[in-house]
Design a protein around this nucleic acid. Structure first.
Lengths: 122, 122
DNA sequence: GATACCGGTTTCCTTTAGGATAGTGCCCAA
DNA sequence: TTGGGCACTATCCTAAAGGAAACCGGTATC
């Protein structure tokens, strides 16, 4: 059947494109910390130590690396305020706002996944 | 101000919970291949070699490991059909359907991210 | 009988992520 | 002046992720 074949071809092609898109996304968002870090900035700018606390035991070296990486990819902006002792603030860029929906879905999924795991372990 | 403090506290707390939820999610979905693999099964069951082709040069060892892992976490079911030569099919479970929205958002983001990168490299 | 595809496994290896620990320069408060 | 917080950097190290290559038994095809 022509229709069926076309449909199969169509879904095959779009499926491959989708797989590629997800791989593209993961390429920049990989690792344990990037998404949680971006999320933690979504309520407003934060300082280094505060991010560290919010993420729960990330070492300063790793955090520093992640921040640098995110800065290079324009997800995060580093701002230095000339206060009494200088204050360094990390802030989301408009571009990282484009991740809001991804983070929202991931958060929701994480919440229900934890519940499922809890239920199973009883 | 009390209201302000309460608001801050509230968003702090929910923010921490959200960070935790995202970390929970990433804990099971980590790595280069799991999400693309689940996505590639979303159009229907696939055989080992077909998945391999769909993901674009994943080695059989790695694919085998990922499938085993996803099976243990109940994202994927392995079905053996007793055809002339046996056919092995990998299929999404109902539970992995709960990732549909996450995958959809990640795919959309990946698509627009690629466009952005393309635009910038011109 | 040779070749090829399927569904993997085995072995070996390199790279990377990520953590532990220590230390730096600066400022402030007691 | 001693102790502590901030914002990091530097060094070292391990474990895990992931890839390359070879191989395996079974079946089908030419």
């Amino acid at each position: 059947m022509e229709t069926t074949n076309q449909n199969i071809t169509h879904t095959r092609a779009t499926c491959l494109a989708s797989v590629k898109a997800v791989k593209d996304a993961l390429y920049v968002l990989n690792g344990k910390w990037k998404l949680p870090l971006i999320l933690s900035l979504s309520e407003g700018p934060m300082r280094f130590k505060d991010i560290q606390r919010a993420l729960g035991e990330i070492t300063p070296k790793v955090l520093s690396n992640e921040l640098r990486d995110l800065e290079e990819n324009e997800f995060v902006e580093r701002k230095i305020l000339s206060t009494k002792p200088v204050t360094v603030l990390y802030e989301m860029t408009p571009y990282s706002r484009s991740l809001d929906r991804v983070l929202e879905e991931l958060r929701n999924w994480g919440l229900q996944h934890r519940q499922r795991i809890m239920r199973k372990s009883e």
